[in-house]
Design a protein around this nucleic acid. Structure first.
Lengths: 219, 219
DNA sequence: TGATAACCTGACTAAATGGTCAAATGTTTT
DNA sequence: AAAACATTTGACCATTTAGTCAGGTTATCA
């Protein structure tokens, strides 16, 4: 299905046809992300996605054929964003800056793309039946290099010995994603009001400070 | 439905009838917890629950009438366990002990009742349509007293000023529940092997230490 | 302009699903 | 023992759902 878009790069590109597909796929993808976030793969219906996208149901099937296929596209699309934030982790020498940047970036993603985080949460909670492959290849690889960075910092006494580096990583993931996945609970416990932009920035800083102190760094 | 069990406390209680109901309800509850954990309220089917419980589907409806009703029972049953761990938070004067105990208890629950944690995660991710009430009353109340404890510790300079006490609480919840909700991911990143009992104890201690340091306490 | 190919969608279908029910079986009480 | 009540379950039903398809519209390009 991806090669269709590539092939569409005709020369005398008269926009319309190409653009129609591009736009509709995006509209459907955005709608699907919301519905999958709320109901998971099994619970979501193509009708709900169609309604959310304000398109007839057949249109969804026309562009993505099956629900499972659409689901995969949604997950992949989110992963792209996640990886962008992740890839900078080992570009910093100092743990303080690396953590500050990475935690900050993950918090930002929780704010700007909460539905994506939820879709992945659902997928993993239900045993990653669809994305098993990706977890044990792409993610595993990234985590391994990340663990190496952390272990190096520990050896160089730049941070406290946290034992297993995974534990630290999980704390960062879990805490930052909590603000996306459990945003409804966060709202309720914030007296029923959504966090404002500036409140969120405040929490972001607090999370960064908590993480820094947890590895023995003074913020 | 609850009053049925109460009413069943006849005198010459000839066990069987009473026991049958007790046992079957438990069997169904356990099966339902697993299926709801994996697929959420909408995604789970009564057939799946019946198969998991090794009972005919009609039997599930006989005891719990509707799927939604069964779902509520499952959520409530989990909440009982959660609250037990939670209620001791303000019985400790020293933050070090309180945190050690609470984080430890939550980690234990993630190990012993991972499905329960997942069901709640699903419920909240999907906007808590069923348990809204409980969140904004029972949970809110507990959180408020908990926040007070933390704020007192801050005033007494027993811990570092973390800003908003909620942020600390979320970090504890998110990190401990990560080991239940994302157990599948944890397994994959542990080279495909489930954490052993002793490995888990190790992680538990690491999480406790991370949290303690994050509020400026030396473990 | 006309042929071709992509887009669009209402109407349809086969399968799955939550829930009902009546009849059968088992237990308790009088 | 037999009336009264609880449990069990296969058969059934109305509704929902993913996916199909035929026939229509619109864009592209020679």
């Amino acid at each position: 299905m991806g090669n269709v878009m590539v092939a569409a790069k005709a020369r005398n590109s008269s926009r319309s046809k190409e653009k129609i597909r591009e736009e509709n796929e995006l509209i459907i993808l955005i709608a699907a992300e919301k519905v999958f976030a709320k109901h998971g793969l099994k619970g979501a219906t193509t009708k709900q996605i169609a309604d959310m996208a304000k398109l007839p149901k057949s249109n969804i099937h026309y562009y993505f054929h099956t629900k499972l296929n659409l689901y995969r596209y949604v997950l992949e699309s989110i992963l792209v964003d996640w990886m962008k934030a992740a890839d900078t982790f080992d570009t910093f020498d100092e743990p303080r800056e690396a953590i500050r940047y990475y935690v900050g970036a993950k918090m930002d993603l929780s704010r700007t793309r909460p539905f994506g985080s939820k879709v992945w949460a659902n997928e993993i909670i239900s045993g990653a039946p669809v994305m098993e492959e990706i977890l044990s290849s792409r993610l595993k690889k990234w985590v391994d290099t990340c663990v190496n960075s952390i272990n190096t910092w520990i050896e160089l006494k730049k941070i406290v010995n946290v034992g297993d580096a995974h534990t630290l990583l999980y704390m960062i993931w879990a805490t930052t994603q909590h603000y996306a996945d459990f945003d409804y609970q966060v709202m309720i416990l914030n007296n029923g009001k959504k966090l404002t932009e500036s409140e969120f920035e405040e929490k972001k800083q607090q999370v960064i400070d908590l993480v820094l102190r947890s590895v023995g760094l003074n913020p």
